[in-house]
Design a protein around this nucleic acid. Structure first.
Length: 978
RNA sequence: GGGGAUGUGGUGGAAUGGUAGACACGCUAGUUUUAGGAACUAGUGCCGCAAGGCGUGAAGGUUCAAGUCCUUUCAUCCCCACCA
């Protein structure tokens, strides 16, 4: 008997498939098309590991499954070859990037080939090939012509030692990754794509996509659309005659809190900062601005950092109440978002609160929480009364307990702190001591602290009106001992009883929600965010915050000091790279005509060969040093002009590659519209979640640009997106070259496991969309499984030869077992077909293992060698073919297959063959499993119930009980309720 | 802080509201002269000699029946993050 030897059969079949071109796709209108795509890889210096392989395995199984089901499948592969890592790799190894890419793609391709993936290699593309980037440049021009590519001064990280700009990710804690020196910011003219023009569409069109919620929400958050208002604050006019009136525009999503704005904050980079700063503060302000410049983003983004800032000396006028409020600068306000200036509402914004506490700025509450109320129905509106009140939490130091009041009469059921009104001319503290003495009979209490700002509205007890509320000051007081406590007046006794509770019990004892809020505020003073009922806001008092938001914006708009605006977190896409290894930006700078696009007939603008790829400095790529390349003539006027020396971000190349696969060799246009229409959009896009917001957003934007330009007829490039889970190293850590814990497929193949076992393991290890740690022992399991498949096929064929040479009449006939064999096979067809359709790879493989185990059992009583066995084994091989293409092809041919198993038709199941003669019914009593009965299929409910009751075990349980109810789930279970 | 996800045996993981633990790893025993990473057969959630009981992060609830649905809560991971 031949042994299973993957090392021998795998290369053999890979060559046959390549020679016969069985995976080549063409526009065959007779079949439905399916475009299956995995992210095209970045051929870096590090080899591909089993984590990458999982991505391609998933795509390959999907592609093969659809191919066998009669789809016209396109499954292409190419190389995302431009970019920094390749350039750095080349510099490090002292070779050209071209050479580095050539070497790496060769190695990657070999690795992919060895895994037996069914790629149509005739469509292979390479983004660094002039025949490809010619069209990337063409698309740049398309964006340029449509006003979507523009140049702007933008501050970039700059390393003075290396004389180069650095990408954000190359700055580590404010230091250059190469030399370790501190970096600064330098303003450079940069190219941008106006992705913000597409912000709304990028969010709206997400809805219909078959993508995971995780990625959708990431993109949603990344675009960060927020509806709010811009409000104009006038800067208080200076007494100096020369000064003209300045205005500060802020962006806010909470216009409803405008009355609570007690100061303003500008970002240090804000252009008004030096203009409005008063002379007395100028040196302080300058110092702060300089400090902020040096701070790295990482430092500034540390939310745990204490707030810093300086006062400018200037004041602004709050347009709502004409109040004069101080203007500060602080780096917690980001220049890049909104208008770079905010109105600070410390009572209702945690950052502003923190800042106000640190610099002792006023805090004013302008709404209060409106929560569920046990006494009043929530729909009933409260009346605010003008009288201010005080709420006092009194602690007895000797017992640690707090004083609370249980109320009687109209306020029955309410438990509050000691409270009462603040009389004319009285401070909150005085009122607190007076109330303690009146309501608790304690005269030696001391004030511990008064809350920084008024907290929440309370019931107005003295008016015996539960539907009235007043605004209260919260006070914490203490008393040393209760020896001097006296009786309280009779009228006090009537309204309430004093109780003492431990600190832990205070919150739960307090009844109206407002009382709880005051307590928790006293414990931990913080901003009140969220929504509520407006207070302290003049004519707007009593509105819900959400309603006030709309009203005040409308009112401000009438006065032309405000308007509704939408803001995005997303910025325009900076695509300039001062690096060599990228597609040159096809622009010529003419002293007369400005930035002029290179005419189509001069594309591609090819990368010239250079001696050194090391960035030279001054914020330009090495291309700036290639004079014969830089110096050219203006396409418009013919006068001497210079080429743009920046190259494009690699993400530009990957923003359209999926379209190029449809027509990879076209040299007159990026793709033929017909071919694009035939293949696109991508039906299954498979890759890791790391591309969630970069590539996937950029590609979607480009597609929309193409749609607007009439180049394509679809708005979204990827109908379904599938993010596979990561494969971790056996130690549970992320695989990385630097950690030295990577496992490459090649080592497993060299050990003799074979690509088929590895492919199976990639998927059997767990659900495809969840990460899992690689298991070498598990790989032994899939290898063993393939061996069992191999062995049973060999046994069958040995038997066939024996039967052919010996006696044909000795064939064993057994109707029941033959039926059982067919049932097992058809059940597997059904389960694998359904599971594969839903990408249930691990359960599909489990089903195939189960079927194999079952076949082993059946062959003991029903020897292999018959035509029925031939059919059963053929189907097993077909079901296994998408997962393990080599072994199934080999055995398929050994069994007499004339053409490739991979071009055979996916088997169909027959429901009639799935039915068993005997059905198994579970018997439960009160939902607990008690017995299992077997009964002929098709038995009626009564028959089943009777049989169940007759069961010995069931009978013993039913003996002393009456059946209240019998539930019968057909063909499944019986439940007796007793 | 915001968003997303995940919690089931010794391990990876299965379970249209209907037998929890399929399949596999590991482990235990047995068979076979067996040096091949063996293969095959049987067993393997926990407690218990057994009958039986207990079991899906925790606590409640809905239901004849809950891993699955609802409410609360805890833990872990990922992404974004001083975004006004």
């Amino acid at each position: 008997m031949k042994r299973y030897n993957p090392k021998e059969i795998e290369p053999k079949w890979q060559k046959v498939w390549e020679d016969r071109k069985i995976y080549q796709a063409s526009e065959d209108p007779a079949k439905p098309k399916r475009y299956v795509l995995e992210y095209f890889p970045y051929p870096s210096g590090a080899a591909m590991h089993v984590g990458h392989v999982r991505n391609y395995t998933i795509g390959d199984v999907v592609a093969r499954f659809y191919r066998m089901r009669g789809y016209n499948v396109m499954h292409p592969m190419g190389w995302d070859a431009f970019g920094l890592p390749a350039e750095n790799y080349a510099i490090k190894n002292n070779i050209s990037p071209q050479q580095a890419i050539a070497e790496n793609t060769t190695r990657f391709k070999q690795q992919l080939m060895r895994m037996g993936f069914s790629y149509d290699w005739s469509r292979e593309i390479n983004s660094s090939d002039p025949s490809y980037y010619k069209w990337t440049q063409w698309f740049f021009k398309l964006l340029f012509d449509r006003g979507l590519a523009y140049q702007k001064e933008s501050p970039q990280w700059w390393c003075e030692t290396d004389k180069t700009v650095l990408a954000n990710e190359q700055v580590e804690s404010g230091k250059c990754w190469r030399c370790g020196n501190e970096v600064t910011k330098k303003s450079l003219k940069q190219w941008f794509f106006k992705i913000t023009d597409y912000a709304d569409r990028l969010v709206e069109d997400l809805e219909d996509l078959d993508w995971s919620d995780a990625i959708k929400s990431m993109q949603h958050n990344w675009v960060g659309r927020s509806k709010g208002a811009e409000i104009t604050f006038a800067v208080e006019t200076s007494k100096q005659k020369t000064a003209k009136e300045e205005k500060i525009i802020v962006f806010t999503t909470r216009a409803d809190t405008l009355f609570g704005a007690t100061f303003m904050v500008l970002a240090p980079e804000h252009p008004l900062v030096m203009k409005i700063a008063k002379d007395s503060q100028k040196s302080e302000v300058e110092k702060y601005v300089k400090q902020a410049q040096v701070k790295s983003d990482i430092e500034r983004q540390d939310t745990d950092r204490e707030k810093t800032g300086v006062f400018t000396g200037a004041y602004a006028i709050n347009p709502a109440n004409n109040e004069k409020i101080p203007i500060w600068i602080a780096d917690y306000v980001l220049y890049g978002y909104g208008t770079g200036a905010i109105m600070a509402v410390p009572a209702h914004d945690e950052r502003d609160f923190e800042f106000a506490v640190k610099f002792d700025l006023p805090i004013r509450q302008v709404f209060m929480e409106s929560g569920d109320d046990p006494v009043n129905p929530p729909q009933e509106k409260f009346k605010m009364i003008k009288r201010k009140t005080v709420v006092v939490h009194l602690r007895d130091r000797s017992s640690g307990k707090y004083a609370l009041l249980n109320w009687h009469g109209t306020l029955e059921g309410i438990t509050t702190a000691i409270m009462g009104g603040i009389d004319e001319g009285e401070t909150a503290e005085n009122a607190a001591l007076r109330e303690i003495s009146e309501e608790a009979g304690i005269h030696n209490a001391k004030i511990v602290k008064t809350a920084r700002w008024i907290s929440a509205a309370t019931y107005c007890a003295s008016h015996k009106q539960v539907n009235r509320k007043s605004i209260s000051t919260a006070v914490l007081a203490e008393v040393d001992n209760l020896s001097k406590q006296t009786e309280v007046a009779d009228y006090e006794k009537k309204t309430h009883t004093l109780i003492w509770v431990t600190g832990d019990a205070v919150e739960e004892s307090l009844i109206p929600i407002n009382q709880k809020q005051i307590w928790s505020y006293l414990q931990n003073e913080t901003a009140l965010t969220g929504e509520g009922e407006v207070i302290n806001s003049g004519e707007y008092d009593g509105l819900l915050t959400s309603d006030m938001r709309e009203k005040i914006v409308a009112d401000l708009a009438k006065k032309k000091v405000g308007k509704e605006v939408v803001n995005y977190k997303m910025r325009d896409w900076l695509i300039s790279r001062q690096r060599y290894w990228g597609a040159p930006i096809p622009i010529i700078h003419c002293p007369k005509d400005g930035a002029v696009a290179v005419p189509d007939d001069q594309l591609p603008v090819e990368l010239p060969e250079v001696k050194s790829y090391q960035p030279t400095g001054e914020g330009a790529s090495v291309l700036a040093g290639v004079e014969e390349w830089v110096n050219t003539t203006c396409p418009k006027c013919g006068e001497p002009a210079k080429r743009e020396t920046d190259t494009m971000d690699g993400f530009a190349c990957s923003s359209w590659y999926f379209l190029r696969f449809a027509d990879p060799h076209n040299d007159v246009e990026p793709f033929s519209p017909q071919k694009a229409k035939f293949w696109l959009p991508v039906d299954d896009y498979i890759g890791g979640a790391e591309h969630a917001v970069m590539h996937l957003l950029y590609a979607r934007m480009w597609t929309k640009v193409m749609y607007d330009a009439g180049l394509v007829e679809f708005k979204e490039p990827f109908t379904a997106l599938r993010n596979q889970g990561m494969i971790l190293a056996p130690d549970g850590q992320k695989m990385s070259k630097s950690k030295g814990n990577t496992i490459e497929p090649d080592e497993l193949l060299d050990q003799g496991y074979g690509a088929d076992s590895v492919r199976l393991m990639e998927l059997f290890i767990g659900p495809w969309d969840q990460s899992a740690a690689w298991s070498v022992k598990g790989l032994g399991g899939t290898y063993r499984f393939l061996n069992r498949v191999w062995t049973i096929c060999q046994e069958h064929m040995t038997e066939v030869t024996k039967l052919e040479t010996e006696d044909q009449t000795q064939k064993v006939e057994n109707q029941d077992i033959s039926k059982e064999l067919r049932r097992a096979v058809h059940q597997a067809i059904k389960r694998v077909s359904v599971d594969l359709h839903d990408m249930g790879f691990n359960t599909s493989i489990a089903t195939l293992m189960e079927l194999t185990n079952e076949l082993y059992k059946l062959k003991r009583s029903y020897p292999v060698g018959s035509a029925e066995w031939h059919d059963a084994l053929s189907i097993l091989l077909q079901l296994l073919a998408p997962f393990a293409p080599h072994i199934t092809e080999e055995l398929w041919q050994q069994l007499g297959g004339q053409t490739s198993i991979h071009t055979s038709s996916w088997p169909l199941w027959d429901d009639a063959l799935l039915v068993n003669n005997i059905m198994k019914i579970i018997v439960q009593i009160n939902g607990k499993l008690r017995a299992e009965i077997h009964i002929a299929t098709g038995a009626s409910e009564i028959q089943v119930l009777d049989t169940a009751k007759a069961n010995e075990r069931v009978a013993s349980y039913l003996q002393d009980h009456k059946i209240k109810k019998s539930i019968y789930v057909p063909n499944r279970l019986v439940n007796f309720v007793v």
